[in-house]
Write a protein that binds this DNA or RNA. Structure first.
Lengths: 234, 234
DNA sequence: TTTTCCAATGATGTGCACAACGATACCCGA
DNA sequence: TCGGGTATCGTTGTGCACATCATTGGAAAA
């Protein structure tokens, strides 16, 4: 496709590529379990397999990819048991953002939260809805990561979020029994969360915002478990 | 040196190598800021630069290394500000191990804690003391990571521990003003912690063990800050 | 018809030669 | 003697050819 810039620093080129691939995975352009082709990706980005493999190795270290000799490079899936553990951890970490170096949002950041809230409410229905929803969730997570100055904490919550959100959304859009009904419901719930968090940040009450988010992570986890229980007795 | 096994699976070989390098970094065989040679490492492990670079990329993704084009590959140092943040986070995470899927230690694990406690008390004084102490701390961290079934949490605490412990120990053994006095004091304190945690685990009271550890992380952080304040007014 | 073996295929892993880059030391001119 | 520009060297980054592995399909034997 587009070889991007013909010549940028090697370091920036690889960082850029890593970000692009990470987004594609989180936006479900590459759903869990899918096989990627090193050669195809190298061709798409106008480089050799060697530097591409370096990027893939980094993504493998963060748990988003897994390479198997002679078979292929796969986007990782997350087993139910581990998903449960990540959710349990996210619930605990949600409050820490307000306790460790909370940073009241500056006007530009507040504007981002407002934009996310309105975008969530006006999310258009259609075949592109899942991807738009995924993008929305990604943006929300990115905005949240600026609410605390504790970078290691925000990196971890962001990482865990990326691991769970894509699996969660993938399960939602896979029409096992309830096809799109769940998705519409989840979108409405997320819109409420975005609005509530926005309102809390306008005060600004960071602890309230964190508590709201924590509650939603917890409830989202419960709904996922219910959905699992429904899907099993088939 | 020793090319290890002449032929093992590629995946295992690289995982093994990554573990070895990670240990060398955490045991301060490769102190923060030191420059590594890709060619020398490749030669030592009997492989080409290509697979070695794959391992280095993974270590770079976890923040232990940093490669700079045309300059070298360096063991990362951690700035004071970030070290503070990691400590603050570790203090909060310490209690979670007892709250999320606590696992009472089986007899073999208990034996490991006992061994660590006695080894800490009988730590021989000498030129090899810092390395033996680093090994002790590493083993203690590894044993602790089995006290909870929540794997993502234990991975994170382990990762954060590796990031802080090596910097902390390096600062201790660098004779800026108080040469080895601090080290001996820290060893004694650690020995007390290991004994207290061991006693709590014999009950077994995992919450007490976590609280003890949390207290020691917090106090260790305070001592580090004091030491910093002492070092500055030179 | 079924089973077994093997060859072909496509993927990732490895080694090597060269390019690109940054730091350093040196030389030349003022 | 000092300053600046340049050449050289060491190191990481890239491209390519090949090795290695796992799967799959088909052919041959039971």
């Amino acid at each position: 496709m587009a070889p991007a810039e013909p010549h940028l620093t090697a370091r920036l080129r690889s960082a850029r590529l890593e970000q692009i691939l990470r987004e594609r995975i989180c936006l479900l352009d590459y759903p869990p379990g899918v096989k990627l082709s090193e050669e195809a990706l190298a061709g798409e980005f106008g480089m050799s397999r060697t530097p591409l493999r370096r990027v893939l190795a980094r993504l493998e270290a963060t748990g988003l990819l897994q390479s198997v000799h002679g078979v292929g490079t796969f986007v990782t899936d997350v087993a139910d048991a581990e998903l449960d553990r990540i959710y349990a951890l996210r619930i605990e970490l949600a409050i820490l953002a307000a306790r460790l170096e909370p940073r009241p949002p500056a006007p530009p950041l507040l504007a981002r939260f407002r934009e996310i809230a309105t975008r969530a409410r006006d999310l258009p229905a259609g075949p592109e809805t899942p991807r738009a929803f995924a993008r929305l969730i990604l943006d929300f997570s990115a905005a949240q990561s600026e609410l605390s100055g504790n970078q290691p904490l925000m990196e971890m919550t962001g990482h865990l979020h990326g691991q769970t959100a894509r699996i969660w959304l993938h399960a939602l859009t896979q029409p096992e029994d309830g096809p799109r009904l769940d998705l519409a419901e989840e979108i409405a719930i997320f819109a409420r969360e975005a609005e509530d968090v926005r309102d809390a940040l306008e005060i600004p009450d960071l602890e309230a915002a964190a508590a709201i988010h924590r509650a939603h992570v917890s409830m989202s986890f419960r709904r996922l478990q219910e959905r699992r229980a429904q899907g099993r007795p088939d």
